[in-house]
Design a binder for these strands. Sequence first.
DNA 1: CGCCGAGCTAAGCGCTTGCTTACACTGGTG
DNA 2: CACCAGTGTAAGCAAGCGCTTAGCTCGGCG
Lengths: 223, 223
Amino acid sequence: MSEASTARLDEAQARGLAEMWDDGTGHLGPASARRLLVAAVDAFAARGYHGTSTRDIADRAGLSPAGVYVHFASKEDLFYRITLVGHQRTLHNAVLAVQEVGDGGPAARLHAVIEAQTTWQARHHTTARVVEYDLPCLSPEHYEEVSALRREITALVRGILHEGVRAGVFDVPNVDGTTLALLSMVTDVARWYPSNSRQPPEELGKLYADLALRMAAPHTSDS
Amino acid sequence: MSEASTARLDEAQARGLAEMWDDGTGHLGPASARRLLVAAVDAFAARGYHGTSTRDIADRAGLSPAGVYVHFASKEDLFYRITLVGHQRTLHNAVLAVQEVGDGGPAARLHAVIEAQTTWQARHHTTARVVEYDLPCLSPEHYEEVSALRREITALVRGILHEGVRAGVFDVPNVDGTTLALLSMVTDVARWYPSNSRQPPEELGKLYADLALRMAAPHTSDS
DNA sequence: CGCCGAGCTAAGCGCTTGCTTACACTGGTG
DNA sequence: CACCAGTGTAAGCAAGCGCTTAGCTCGGCG
């Protein structure tokens, strides 16, 4: 019965999901609630919000259909908690990466944040897919709350680009557009990983961080 | 009655959609079939494949629920035709752009294809969103058919990068990874345009083409 | 005229959806 | 012991789903 909840996940993925959603603090509730979260992430990632039924989720978690509503008020509530926690951890991951390089300058900060976010998207691609691609299914209030977290991530990257331009180490004619392009590049990893490239998350992170620096660096030959 | 089909679209968007799906050859069938296609694209883009009912689509096209099945065998059939034609035109757009620059070298070709595809994604963002983000809803055979077209686009970009590396005008350590990053950047435009940036499609195209050249160009200062 | 095929609809079938209700079991506390 | 909050289930409701059926209208053609 305890295995039934993750029967349709391969072991590595299940371990990754469990780590993602079991932080040891227990504030996500009892074991069944966490199993429901993991089951829901997996189902939403595979078939989308509207393509997943509450019975799917309950089955994967080893509960009856009504068991979902012991822990969550509605399907949307379950989805909301996933997207909220997912965005909070993504943002935390980015902020931490920037803090860790300290005063290494804008180039080091840009490298750090793009590497950290890309690695994160690849490593947690199942969760990331849910978190990134079905937001319009949230209620308007919840959508606004989660969007605010997204704007914080955008602002973090844009701030680094601005800083680099001011300091003269970046040449970025269009900061807003370049920020969007960088975040698109990183976000989209969750959509295709790992089917289009089997590179480990860390290598992909280094590659994308290098590409980001190229996009921002001053180029000597003007074409 | 003829206006009812696009009642929920603003005029500019309706015009763009109509142009996209009415090529004058009439091989997409009678007027009702085209109205259904436009209605379906709009509905799928707004709420996803599973979030859209056949009654939604029929309503928007000004038909009764059964009217859909006069022209299409099933909801999946309707979706399939949209994604197939959408991918064919996207691929055609890319190939044409590359052909037009002739022998300008890899840099000119890369610039052309990224500019053309980015502009396309922004201009046809409603169609592009359907075409890019719900492919797993297709039947396995249809999915494979459409995926083949996607691989052609990938191969086109990767070929240009390879060519540039061979010719010594590009410095791209990881061609496959860089190809993915470029296509992610371009594809993702359909997800956010125009809500995050109101730049006209052409400007966005030039910006992204410039960024692509930076990603591929040899950098003189090795950091 | 009679007939036909194309286009369309009203009605509805069988099934699934999100969610609720009524009830049962369990372990800890007075 | 009695009690109760927490956790779970079996059964089922109202609504919506994709799709089918039977029958209508209408222009074109012998």
